[in-house]
């Protein structure tokens, strides 16, 4: 069983929802990012999404764009990000880690070389924003063959006609993008999200976590209540952008985690 499946299984038995945190590798510099990333499980994070910096993140808002630019300016490379993943794996043998980013740095390294390195580093899954099901032959199928989960994105525009395409070759969990828009934009509405989550869960048989537009412990709790987990990215990255030291960033993350882990109706 994969780390991701084990984690959702355990959370299910405990009656808890997953809290997924996104942090950009190398932001604002490799050492600070390392401290934050290694501290995430201690702050209550169930699954870590490690952002892979890219010059042209076309689905991301200004917060993540600038984080990528800071990381690249500080010398972060895909190889450096894989090294960070490997270090995380040594420190936290059981906590799932997925890489999230865009295809070109991976294509540039070479798909086979990348998958080998990612496996060796202990990466569990990949979220690649610009690889829809139509391009599965590029990376999704080779990743599955290499034993990595290829995590699908579903969106409000993923209608019933498209769900079968999204469900095919999906593994690990499904990341439901709760709004039509870019990261860090409008707030997600739990009432609007709930039926979509149910629809996607039924079609894929996989846990569904919801991200985009979640900025507070209260919002994390409300979204987690109608899904299998909540993802927070831009709000954490904003803390990093403001120059907060890792310990403070991790306290902020811990507040979000308590929100996501609280039962619906319970105070976050």
């Amino acid at each position: 069983m994969t780390r991701i499946a084990e984690t959702f299984g355990r959370l299910g038995r405990e009656g808890r929802k997953a809290f997924v945190a996104y942090v950009m590798a190398g932001d604002p510099d490799p050492e600070t990012a390392r401290e934050i990333v290694l501290g995430l499980p201690g702050a209550g994070v169930d699954i870590v999404e490690l952002g892979v910096p890219f010059t042209d993140p076309m689905a991301d808002g200004p917060t993540i764009q600038l984080a990528g630019q800071r990381a690249l300016a500080a010398g972060q490379t895909l190889r450096g990000t894989l090294d960070l993943a490997a270090e995380f794996r040594r420190a936290h043998p059981d906590v799932p880690l997925v890489l999230m980013g865009y295809y070109n740095p991976i294509f540039s390294m070479g798909v086979e070389a990348f998958l080998g390195a990612a496996r060796e580093a202990g990466v569990d899954g990949l979220i690649v924003v610009d690889l829809p099901p139509e391009e599965d032959e590029e990376l999704a199928l080779p990743a599955r063959a290499a034993g990595l989960d290829f995590i699908r994105l579903a969106t409000p525009t993923t209608d019933d006609r498209r769900l079968p395409a999204v469900a095919a070759n999906a593994s690990g969990f499904v990341y439901y993008v709760s709004i039509t828009g870019i990261t860090g934009a409008a707030a997600a509405d739990p009432e609007a999200v709930a039926p979509d989550v149910a629809r996607i869960r039924a079609a894929t048989g996989l846990p569904v976590v919801v991200g985009f537009g979640i900025r507070t412990p209260e919002a994390a709790r409300a979204i987690a209540a109608v899904a299998d987990g909540a993802v927070v990215g831009s709000a954490i990255v904003s803390e990093v952008a403001q120059g907060r030291p890792p310990a403070e960033v991790l306290r902020f993350v811990a507040d979000l985690a308590r929100g996501a882990h609280a039962e619906a109706g319970e105070a976050a």
Binding site: P132, E134, E135, A154, P156, T157, R162, T180
Partner: peptide, 20 residues
Amino acid sequence: ERGRFGQFGGRFVSETLMPL
């Protein structure tokens, strides 16, 4: 039919845009 000219072209967009 996949929008390819040899290896080039394709549809490398986010899921939100794919139906459109």
